[in-house]
Simulated assay, not measured.
Amino acid sequence: MISRLENLPNGVVGFEASGKISAEDYRDTVLPALTEAAAAGEVRFLLVVTDFDGMTGGALWEDLKVGVEHLRAWKRIALVTDLDWMAHVTSLFGWMTPGETKTFPLAARDEALAWVVG
């Protein structure tokens, strides 16, 4: 499930993900917010992942489409999680992601927000 984070600074789009991620999560929650942010100029993205039980095939496809559709708009992506494997994979493949990518532990959520805004 993905829910949008509220009360973030202007220009920052944020989400909290937990459990199993579905295509509907992307279509109904992520995509409208990213489309709005990209139309405004650039995407500064904060993703907080507390636990993760996988993604449906449709969610994987939506994830790929989201990145490509707004390729030039991505500025910064902050991943906030205590899941070591997710932070490790992000550090290995972050160079493939548009914009800058950085990971933070859950305890450093405020630091992640400050970085993504900067």
Rank of each mutant, 00 (worst) to 15 (best):
P105E: 12
V12L: 10
L92I: 08
E69S: 10
T97N: 14
R72V: 01
E100G: 03
L71M: 00
G58E: 01
G41L: 08
L64W: 11
F52S: 02
L47W: 10
H70C: 06
M1G: 10
E69L: 11
D25E: 11
F104T: 05
D51K: 06
A112C: 08
I2L: 11
K20M: 13
A37C: 09
I2Y: 06
R27G: 04
L79H: 04
E111P: 05
G94N: 14
M1L: 09
L113G: 09
R72I: 00
A112E: 05
T97C: 14
L106E: 05
L47P: 01
S3E: 13
T97R: 14
S3I: 04
R76M: 11
V66G: 02
G19R: 07
G57S: 02
L113F: 13
G41E: 12
L106M: 07
G19K: 05
F104W: 05
W85K: 01
E69V: 01
V13M: 07
L8W: 08
L34E: 12
A107L: 06
L5F: 09
T50C: 10
L31T: 13
G118C: 09
G67N: 05
H70N: 05
T97Y: 15
I21Y: 01
D28T: 02
T35Q: 12
E62M: 10
R72A: 07
I77K: 14
I77C: 13
W95Y: 15
T56G: 03
M55V: 04
T101L: 12
L113W: 07
R44C: 06
A87F: 04
A73H: 02
R109I: 09
E24C: 14
V89H: 06
A112L: 03
L71I: 00
G19T: 04
G58L: 01
L79G: 02
S18K: 10
R109F: 02
S3H: 12
L8N: 03
L31S: 10
R27K: 12
N7W: 07
W74G: 04
T90M: 12
L83C: 07
T90D: 08
I2E: 08
A33N: 02
F45M: 05
S22G: 10
N10G: 15
T97K: 13
T56I: 06
S3K: 14
R4F: 00
W95R: 15
P32S: 08
L8S: 05
D84K: 11
I2T: 10
A23K: 02
K102L: 09
T101S: 14
A23C: 09
F93N: 13
A33M: 00
A59S: 03
L47F: 06
V43M: 14
D25W: 11
S91M: 08
W115S: 11
T50M: 01
